[in-house]
Design a protein around this nucleic acid. Structure first.
Length: 426
RNA sequence: GGAGGCUUCGCCUAGUCUGGUCUAUGGCGCCGCACUGCUAAUGCGGUUUGGGUAACCAACCCCAUCCCGGGUUCAAAUCCCGGAGCCUCCGCCA
């Protein structure tokens, strides 16, 4: 949630932000009115309650007729207080409901527009020229079959579409990538974490996934649990309702978790292979830091993402996502998109968001320093989303015979292996 | 799944039986000040969080907050009901 003081003092900025996102801007005025009602009803309640308390105290001291009179007055007050309390609760709930609907205020410099209006910040590496090398690149599904690494057909039998088995070297490849990512994160000062994948509604709502993203969330109604779509949820909620000492900031966590996504509204998109799946594993970076540090930390997260992709020798580009394509919690988002040879385009493999104080307010995570107690900033970034990284590695490092070269940095995590060799058909 | 115990202002804790003086006790930690020939000891003061009010900052003041939500009552940390979390034991289980 955003700062109500900002909303009161500079509503135009919030309106402009909503407009840039392509979201409802009338909510700003509705919220301003609701906040006004909340405050006036709270003041009314406070006054009545104050009178009730002092009257109650007099009752305990009074005797005889005076006591009877006070009691009568106190009884009347009790009814008034009850009504005022209910009115206050209603007003507060309405204001809170609207506040939770409002997305984060976008950072200055974010490109306006929708999904296609991103700005490319840089291109790293050069896509291979397979024509010049004299062979047609195979896609990751074919390579996965040849290598005995990916089985989507049997996954469809067992779980339906958008599922996969990683088999043999494919399974080993996931473990190697995860270990490599964790090693890099640990070296950079992150605390490795293995997190819950089922969370309570509060954690989901606090991190901002029950708004526009809700349709992509798996929910276990019988138990009132949500399946997380990213470790961002359990990592962000980790310090829920806590006040962190500014001296221990920034707190950097690298969480490994399964991720579950319904992929509603993506019918027909990426139906082949493991680009878009209902379940995958990911190593996610998450940072709690002072708000004034957030923008710089965002760049650092991007640098760590680039470091990982560079270590895997993948050609990629970095884009500055347009306002309309931001998640509700994010003020700014950078995506790294790896080159996918058989698609002839760049596809998102990692993403880093600066959520400023938005999530921290919802989760009640605060910091204490010389300036007192105040909300802090949260940021997140993908270090390694396993399936898409595997796709990029297989396709970019494939050789004419269907084998795949292992990038040097990954070899120590694969027992020194330099090439993934085709296996006989299963 | 069954039985029991527990949850108080960072941590530990008193208070709950017997409702009002709880405006919540004490210790630890932390902050400030004083003092001693030094960053130790001692003394004094402060230290839940949120909202409102106020606005240069702050203080003062008011309300809420004793796990959460209801209820009883003029009045609830305290009594009643429901829920959550943690712990122990039994059962089951990777």
């Amino acid at each position: 949630m955003i700062d109500l003081r900002l909303l009161r003092e500079d509503p135009d900025r919030v309106r402009a932000s909503q407009r840039a996102r392509g979201e409802d801007e009338t909510i700003v005025d509705a919220l301003l009115a609701a906040d006004e009602r909340r405050r006036s009803s709270a003041t009314a309640f406070d006054q009545l309650r104050s009178e009730q308390k002092s009257t109650g105290k007099q009752v305990s001291k009074a005797q005889g007729e005076e006591r009877a009179a006070l009691l009568e007055r106190a009884q009347a007050l009790a009814a008034d207080v009850k009504a005022a309390d209910a009115a206050q609760d209603d007003a507060a709930a309405e204001a809170q409901r609207l506040l939770l609907e409002l997305s984060n205020v976008v950072e200055d410099g974010v490109p306006p527009g929708g999904e296609d209006d991103f700005v490319t910040l840089e291109e790293v590496g050069t896509p291979r020229d397979f024509a010049a090398e004299g062979f047609e690149p195979k896609d990751h599904v074919e390579l996965g079959r040849i290598l005995g690494a990916i089985d989507v057909e049997r996954a469809a039998k067992v779980s339906g579409s958008r599922f996969y088995y990683l088999t043999g070297i494919g399974a080993m490849l996931e473990l190697a990538l995860v270990n490599m990512a964790m090693a890099q994160a640990n070296a950079a000062g992150f605390t490795p974490m293995i997190t819950p994948a089922l969370v309570r509604p509060k954690a989901m709502e606090g991190t901002g996934f029950l708004g526009q993203a809700a349709e992509n969330v798996f929910y276990l109604e019988k138990d009132d649990y949500y399946l997380v779509g990213t470790a961002e949820v359990p990592l962000g909620a980790y310090h829920m309702d806590e006040i962190l000492d500014a001296k221990q900031l920034p707190l950097r966590y690298a969480g490994f978790s399964p991720c579950f996504r319904r992929e509603a509204g993506t019918y027909g998109k990426d139906t082949r292979g493991i680009i878009r799946v209902h379940q995958f594993d990911k190593v996610e970076m998450f940072v709690f830091t002072a708000p004034e540090e957030a923008a710089a930390e965002h760049r650092r997260l991007l640098d760590w993402e680039k470091q990982f992709l560079n270590a895997l020798e993948l050609p990629f580009r970095v884009i500055d996502t347009a306002a309309g394509d931001l998640g509700s919690s994010a003020a700014r988002k950078f995506d790294c998109e790896a080159w996918i040879p058989t698609q002839g385009k760049y596809r998102e493999v990692t993403s880093t968001s600066n959520c400023t104080e938005f999530q921290a307010r919802r989760l009640a995570v605060r910091m204490r320093d010389a300036d007192g107690t105040r909300p802090l900033a949260t940021l997140n970034g993908t270090l390694c989303a396993v399936p898409r990284t595997i796709v990029a590695i297989l396709e970019n490092h494939q050789q004419a015979d269907g084998s795949v070269r292992v990038p040097a940095a990954l070899r120590p995590f694969l027992g020194g292996r330099e090439v993934l060799e085709p296996v006989g058909a299963a």
